[in-house]
Amino acid sequence: MTETPNPHIIDADTLTGEMRPIRRTVVSLGSNLGDRFANLQGAVDALADTPEVWITNVSAVYESEPIGAPEGSDSFLNAVVLFDTTLSAARLVDRVQAIEDAFGRERDGVVNAPRTLDVDLIVVGDRRSNESWLQLPHPRAAERAFVLQPWYDLEPDAEIPDHGRVADLLGKTGDQGLQRRDDLVLANPA
Rank of each mutant, 00 (worst) to 15 (best):
R95W: 03
G42P: 07
L117H: 05
R180L: 10
M1T: 11
I22M: 10
D118M: 03
G30I: 07
V110E: 10
A48V: 07
D157H: 08
M19R: 12
I55A: 10
G30M: 05
H8F: 13
E143A: 10
E155A: 08
V53Q: 08
R107A: 12
D162P: 02
L40N: 05
R23M: 07
P161I: 06
T2W: 11
A158D: 08
D126K: 09
P156C: 01
G17C: 02
S28D: 04
W133P: 06
L33Y: 05
S31F: 09
S59A: 11
W133Q: 11
E106F: 11
T56K: 08
L186A: 02
A48E: 09
G104K: 00
L82M: 06
N39P: 10
E63T: 13
E159T: 09
Q135A: 12
D101E: 15
S75K: 15
R95V: 15
R127Y: 08
L92W: 04
M1I: 08
A167M: 04
L134P: 01
E143F: 03
T14E: 13
T173I: 06
P66L: 13
N39D: 14
D74S: 15
V53H: 06
V44R: 06
L134W: 02
P161D: 07
L29H: 00
R24I: 01
P150L: 00
A43R: 01
Q149L: 09
D120Q: 03
N57M: 12
G34V: 10
L148Q: 00
L186H: 00
D183W: 00
D118N: 02
